[in-house]
Design a binder for these strands. Structure first.
Lengths: 112, 112
DNA sequence: TATATATTTAGATAATTACCTAAATATCGA
DNA sequence: TCGATATTTAGGTAATTATCTAAATATATA
């Protein structure tokens, strides 16, 4: 989840996601949209891949990138929970009971 | 929007948001949840404030922080649009028509 | 007014990130 | 196999970020 948010924290990468939302594209096609060197775009694509937000598949000479909407939906779920649109979590309920210990909860849980 | 995503790209800050989702808290109360110096937490709170994700209000000796769910909902909207749950944008429609120019769209629009 | 508490600001440093150019790798087609 | 095309990897640098301690600011209370 942290990787997803980190990957989304860059405007170039968010624009790449929007481009892949429309259709699958090759690395070169994606790079053509930006005023940036191809290696830099490759770096961004790798960040998105590492976050599992996109997948790649070699097609002969080209490498085709596609969006993995599942991970986007996970991020969406995190936000939905927070904006109150989603259901309340167990953790939240406990805290509202006032029983939660007040130290050292900064260890990252899987969910976040 | 970029500031929002950048602010959300840190686990400490996301945890702070979760804490404020439950109830308003003072800077000191928030800091007590983490193994981190108070100045560092202050820095994170400032990042959240700069992204307009939280608001602060002095209450005598204390400074009370609260969540601004409006901005979270904007981020939510961005993601909803991408996961296909939301309505399609004009930009996307144009692109699907195949008329979009293929250079220099990396200038950040307000929406992103 | 003096002291204690709550919080931020300042200043320094280490780690991370984004970008570039050059070089390496993989595939295609003659 | 050779030359062209597509893409990534390597290596370097500049900018940003996260963290700390020490100092400054604001408020409360004795």
């Amino acid at each position: 989840m942290n990787e997803s948010f980190k990957a989304l924290a860059d405007p170039t990468r968010r624009q790449i996601i929007r481009l892949l939302r429309e259709k699958d594209r090759t690395a070169g096609e994606i790079a053509d949209f930006f005023n940036m060197s191809k290696p830099s775009i490759s770096h961004h694509l790798n960040a998105l891949k590492h976050a599992d937000l996109v997948q790649d598949e070699r097609k002969g000479q080209f490498i085709m990138y596609s969006l993995n909407t599942t991970v986007l939906e996970e991020v969406l779920g995190w936000l939905l929970e927070l904006t109150g649109t989603g259901k309340q979590t167990e953790t939240e309920s406990k805290s509202l009971d006032g029983k939660q210990s007040r130290q050292n909860i900064d260890s990252e849980k899987e969910a976040d």
